[in-house]
Simulated scan of single mutants.
Amino acid sequence: MQSPQQPYRLNIKRGKKLANANEVSSFLRHNDKLSPLLPTVKRNLALQKECEKVLPPIFAHCAVLNLAEDQLILSAPNAAIASKLKQQTPKLLTHLQQQGWQISAIRIKVQVKKTVEKPQAIKQAIFSAKALDAFKSLEKTLPTTKENADLKQALARLLARNSSEPT
């Protein structure tokens, strides 16, 4: 919903997922004051796709900011990724020029506001019935001492997690 103070603000966030390019294009097409931005948005999206094609692992966290005066400006979320991207700029520049883009230089800006989320690791350890029996035996025979308390708790958690799973 648009507020009276900011009548042309587009809220492109939907939960954690960004609005797709079609939604942004549709919004710009149907808004007379913002429709002149549509060619720039389309150009930047095309450049973004070309860059992702050439540098998929690095460019997943980066974005095209602007193309002005034959200079492409890219954003990186941190200095480490910016450094890796800078090493790849000759390759990227050559590819873009071969694709017909009139670009003579590439600049990189570090913009920390875009966060890099690491995917949650999924534990996939599956124990055989023999292994689970060995852990049960260890838990039962382990002396109850102060030093063994954490180990006994860990064994109990491990056995509780794996008791309901099929073996």
Rank of each mutant, 00 (worst) to 15 (best):
S104Q: 15
I73C: 01
A80P: 00
L38V: 11
K118C: 00
A156G: 08
N44F: 01
L34P: 07
I108N: 08
A19S: 04
T94L: 12
L28Y: 09
A63Y: 11
Q6N: 12
N20Q: 09
L159Y: 04
I58P: 09
D133T: 13
K114G: 00
K84R: 13
S83G: 12
A149F: 13
A60M: 13
I108K: 03
E50T: 09
A156W: 06
L138R: 13
L45N: 08
A68T: 08
T145N: 07
L65Q: 11
Q111N: 15
T115M: 10
N148Y: 10
Q5M: 10
A46N: 14
N20E: 07
A80Q: 14
N22W: 10
A79V: 06
L37Q: 13
A80T: 11
H95F: 13
D32C: 00
Q2G: 00
K49H: 12
A121P: 12
E117H: 14
N66T: 13
R157G: 05
N20W: 04
A19Y: 00
V41I: 12
L158I: 13
V24P: 03
E69K: 13
R29S: 14
H30T: 07
K146V: 13
K118H: 03
K33E: 10
R157Q: 14
N31G: 01
S75N: 09
Q2N: 10
P57V: 04
Q87L: 02
N11R: 03
N31Y: 01
Q48K: 11
A156Y: 13
A79W: 03
K13Y: 02
L28K: 02
R157M: 09
K109T: 03
I73G: 00
G15Y: 05
W101H: 14
R157S: 12
S3Y: 02
Q48P: 02
K33S: 09
K152T: 11
A79C: 04
K140F: 08
K146P: 08
Q88N: 12
I126A: 10
I73H: 06
F127L: 15
K118V: 14
C62H: 05
A149Y: 12
T145K: 05
L138W: 08
N148T: 15
K13S: 00
E23T: 07
K91Y: 09
I103T: 07
A156R: 07
T115S: 14
A149V: 10
L10G: 03
M1S: 11
A154D: 08
